[in-house]
Nucleic acid binder design. Sequence first.
DNA 1: GTCTTACAGTTTACGCTGTCAACCTGGAAT
DNA 2: ATTCCAGGTTGACAGCGTAAACTGTAAGAC
Lengths: 203, 203
Amino acid sequence: MCPSRPTRDPATPLREAILQEARTLLEGEGYAALSTRRIASAVGCTATSIYLHFKSKDSLIYALINEGFEELNRRVVEVSKGDGSALSLLRDVARAYVDFGLERPEYYEIMFMLRAEQMERYPVDAYRRARRSLEVFAELTALPAQEAARRGAIVWSTLHGLVSLLIAQRIDISLDREALIEDSIHSACLGAFAALPSGANSA
Amino acid sequence: MCPSRPTRDPATPLREAILQEARTLLEGEGYAALSTRRIASAVGCTATSIYLHFKSKDSLIYALINEGFEELNRRVVEVSKGDGSALSLLRDVARAYVDFGLERPEYYEIMFMLRAEQMERYPVDAYRRARRSLEVFAELTALPAQEAARRGAIVWSTLHGLVSLLIAQRIDISLDREALIEDSIHSACLGAFAALPSGANSA
DNA sequence: GTCTTACAGTTTACGCTGTCAACCTGGAAT
DNA sequence: ATTCCAGGTTGACAGCGTAAACTGTAAGAC
């Protein structure tokens, strides 16, 4: 009758409560603030209880990463279904990608800026699904598979460079941010369609 | 007369020995392996002794970051002094940047892929020097300052996207790596000189 | 109605991290 | 001879991820 510890709401199962708190913590204080003990104390359980529902801290993070990919995929695929020229569609999709990164920087960070090597192996099937957004870049080039894959990678890496540097606040703040984004997207799309040197050695 | 602990060589001062061991550890096992206790035990002193020579672990890392920037700057500035058209010079400089990242991935990681927010404030003067390489991108465009700065940022972010994704091994390994690099560099240089939408609102 | 089993938590503990405060020690200066 | 100090050590603290052992409780079987 005198619960010294903040007993949690038994209505929502613990797994969901943990995920919810992890989301809150990630969005509010960033990846660095995500610790099993902080999640547990906010949720009202012990740190080790998390391991009853997640194999490891990494696998909990992967659950969040998956949610991020679901939203990114949803946004990108939706925009890719619009009408217009391939170029203007690609531009819209690129814009959607950048917007996602800037609107949900904490999710972008765990999805794309975490060193993969030091994390447990990302489940293979999840990985396939995760890359869906990136395939859209390739498909929109309407090129043969191999060439398209390379062009898609170029577009993606260009946008990723922009987003990751903006998120990390490494870009000179005196620059006109919106103009930079617009120009970068334009440049990325150029890279998708322009004549490039390696055109010769594509199968 | 029976030194149970591996006594260090008193010829080299401790500060240099710590730095040397940090370099070795970084290059051999990556940033994640850099811990004060590992450095100390390899050097033959205690972890707290590191704080006699560095304000914090972060400031030790900054020393390594500075070394990285010195090498990058040296490479980039050297190449930028070559002769050839602005476009071909920019391409060479871009190549030098990418090569640095791929040849010294551990340094590239601490220089550009560490989240700055969670680190102590980077010393301002050091920061100015650090960005020297990036200014070269801007200068080579031979445009008015503000426009050049934006174009330089576009080139940089494009190359950074490529390098960081390659280092993190996030790019489909079935892609022809060399062709991807070549095309990306070409695309980045296009972005420096092509007509871009925001040309109107540059002062 | 009691015994068994399984689940869903907790407690405790281990080894790791960065860092601080207190202590020690040898040599130079007074 | 005494003092001072630079340059080290020891020990500790708070935090981390996580493994092992323990506990309470609910459902099923006899």
